[in-house]
Simulated assay, not measured.
Amino acid sequence: MAYCPKCGVAVEKDNHPCPLCGFHIPKVNESKEPVERKFPKADNPYPAHMRRVLNRIFVFVSLLIFVAVSLMFYVNYEISGAFTWSRYSNLSVLAGWGILYFSFGYVQNFYKVIIGIALISLVLLFGLDIFGGQLDWFIPLAFPIVVGTAVIGLCYYSLIRSLSVKGFNVIGFFFVAVVILSMWINFFISSHQGETDLLRWLIVTGLQLLPVSLVMLYVKYGLPERVKQKIARKFHL
């Protein structure tokens, strides 16, 4: 039922004008369903904009690298009549381009990033060694060091994820991984120089891990909670 807005008398639906006072009554559509108001979805344009900027920078750098590699090959061949020093420099430049590809975020999976960088490093070191005429240091030195570094990095990341490690424990496990990696590298360097002593290496590794482990235990159980919270807020842990 509708009512005249002037005199208040009840009128029929869509009755024009009012039968009592003659006031023009606007048409009312009572069957119209109420419209639900929805807030617009808030989109963050920054990631997409940043991605476009990074893509342009990467394409520009890639073109520069292609021109530089071609120019070095040309200059080397014109001067020496063969590709000599340009092989080393161009292989290093191309390896740097490969690492740059991962650095620009085109590969999001951490495992693939570690494995990809390790493979690029192996190709680079293999090429630098074999360009000298024979493999002198790649097999006994470079290969185990690069593979060991990749394995330790993957194990560290897997351990952090599986145990849901946070805060100070992340830093503690990181220092443990660095100590293990340092001793791993030291072992193969000593082995390459003919100075390997496995027992001595194990003792030195244990002695280096001991202070790190003691510091981790103190931070976890001995450090006052207010101090830990203050440090965590300071370094966003």
Score class of each variant (00 low, 15 high):
E36M: 01
R37T: 01
R37Y: 05
R37D: 02
F39N: 04
F39L: 10
F39S: 01
P40G: 09
P40V: 07
P40N: 09
K41A: 09
A42Q: 14
D43L: 13
N44Q: 07
Y46P: 02
P47Q: 11
P47S: 10
P47W: 15
A48M: 11
H49E: 14
H49W: 14
M50G: 10
M50I: 05
R51C: 02
R51K: 11
R51G: 10
R52L: 10
R52V: 11
R52I: 09
R52P: 03
L54A: 15
L54T: 13
R56C: 06
R56Y: 08
I57D: 05
I57V: 11
F58S: 05
V59R: 05
V59L: 09
F60I: 03
V61H: 00
V61C: 06
V61S: 01
S62I: 01
S62W: 03
L64F: 02
L64T: 00
V67G: 03
A68R: 00
V69T: 10
V69P: 03
S70D: 05
S70R: 04
S70V: 05
S70L: 12
L71Q: 04
L71F: 14
L71W: 06
L71T: 09
M72E: 01
M72I: 04
M72T: 00
Y74F: 14
Y74N: 08
Y74L: 15
Y74E: 11
V75K: 04
N76R: 10
N76E: 13
N76V: 06
Y77D: 13
Y77R: 08
Y77V: 09
Y77Q: 13
I79H: 09
S80E: 14
G81Y: 06
G81V: 09
A82V: 03
A82L: 06
F83M: 07
F83E: 07
T84A: 14
T84Q: 15
R87C: 08
Y88E: 10
Y88R: 12
